[in-house]
Design a binder for these strands. Sequence first.
DNA 1: TGCGGCACAGACGTCCGATGTATCCGCCCA
DNA 2: TGGGCGGATACATCGGACGTCTGTGCCGCA
Lengths: 223, 223
Amino acid sequence: MAVTDEAIEKIKSMIVSGALRPGSRLPKESELAADLGLSRNSLREAVRALSLIRILDVRQGDGTYVTSLDPQLLLEALSFVVDFHRDDTVLEFLAVRRILEPAATALAAPLITEGQLDALSRQLDELGEDPPVEDLVAADLEFHRGIVRSCGNSVLCSLLDGLSGPTTRARVWRGLTQEDAVGRTLREHRAILAALRDRDAEAARSWATVHIASVEQWLRSTL
Amino acid sequence: MAVTDEAIEKIKSMIVSGALRPGSRLPKESELAADLGLSRNSLREAVRALSLIRILDVRQGDGTYVTSLDPQLLLEALSFVVDFHRDDTVLEFLAVRRILEPAATALAAPLITEGQLDALSRQLDELGEDPPVEDLVAADLEFHRGIVRSCGNSVLCSLLDGLSGPTTRARVWRGLTQEDAVGRTLREHRAILAALRDRDAEAARSWATVHIASVEQWLRSTL
DNA sequence: TGCGGCACAGACGTCCGATGTATCCGCCCA
DNA sequence: TGGGCGGATACATCGGACGTCTGTGCCGCA
C-alpha cells in the first residue's frame, strides 16, 4: 500500500481508537510526518483527503484539528459525492428520498414546535401565489429541511439534506415545463403543514409521500 | 480559496460538465498542473482527495482515470465516513436503517429470483442451529445484502450497505449478551425468506421491521 | 492601569527539482 | 509466431526552501 494510504489509515485509527478526540489538535505536519515515517508532502496528501470529507479541519497559521465528527458534518460530504451522479440515476435518488422523507415527516409530527410551524407557514405566505420558479424550488428545499430538522434524528436529517440536492434540478425542470406544478406544490406543502399542526403523523406521512411521488411520476414520464 | 481547493473544484466541474467522462483519462500530472496553474505537489493533493472518495482512480505507471461514477462505487466511500461515528450515534443509524431496510425488502419481493432465494435458504441451513456469534453476524450481513441487492435500486442498496457497518458491532454485543438472540435472528430470517417466496411484500416489510426493531429495542434498553 | 497596535514565532500553503518504481508497449530474438 | 527484454511514460516519494496567515505577547500611548 502507498505510504499516503497508510497515513490515512493510521490517522483514521488514531481517531477511531480515541487517541485523537474530536476537537483535539494534531502534531504539526513536520512532526506527524516524522512520526508516521513519511515526508511532509505525502502526509499533506493524506491530510487533504481527510479534510475533504470533513474529518480534519486545517487552519492555516494555526494547526490541524479533528472536527466534531457530528453526523451532520460528516454527511455533508455526501452532497459533494452526490453531485457527481449523472441524470440517469436521479430516479433512484428520488426513490430513496420517497422512502425517507415521509418517514422523517411522520417522526416530526409529535416533535415540531408551534413556533417552527408558524415560521414555515409564514414562509409559504411570503412566497405568494405565483412565485418565480427558482424561488419556489429554494423555498421547497427550505420547507422540507425545516420539517426534517425536527425529526429528532440528525443522521436522517443530514442524509436527506445530501440526497435532496440532485433532485433539485429535476424540480426546476418540472416547474418550467409542467402546467400548475407551482400551485400543486404549494397546496401540498400547506396540506403537510396542516397535518403536522394536527399532530397527525399518518396524514403527514401520506401527504409527504404524495408530494414526492408526484415529482417522481412526472420525472418518470419525461425521461 | 487555496489553490488545491480550486483544483478540486475545477476537476469536479470538468467531470460534472461532461468534459471528462467516466473512464476517461486525465492529462498527466505535470500537464494538468500546468493547465490549472499550480504545482504538481498541490495538484497531487487534489487528486488524492478525489481518489479517496472514488471519483478518480490513479494507477501508478499508467495514468489517472475518472471512475465509473456508479452510485455503488461512490457510496462505498460512505462506509469510510461512517466508521468515524461514535457509539452514541449508533441508534440514529439504526433508526435510519429501520426505515430503509423494510422498504428495500418489500421492493425486493417481486424482483428477487427463486435462485437467489434458494441460495439464501442454503446459507441459513449451512449455518446450523447454534453457530458462533461472529459467523452469525457475518451471515446476517450477507443475508440482508443478498435481499437488498434485489430491490432494483442501486442507490438504496449501496446506502444500506454503508449504513449497516456501524450497527454490526452492536449486533455482536447483542449476540454475546442476550439470551436466545441467535435463535431469534435465525427464525426471523426464515420468516423474511418465506414472505419473499410468497411474493408477499407487506409481510416481508413487516418481518424486516420486526427484525431490526428487536435489535433497536435491545440496544436502547442497554445504553 | 487599560487599551490598541506592532512585531515575532509558529504552522500551514506552495513550489521546485530529483530520484524511485510500476506499467505499457514495441522491438528483438528464438 | 510467441515470448522476453528494455526503453518510455507516468505516478510515488522525498527534501528543502520560501510565502502567507494566525495567534500571542510585548510595548507604547492615553
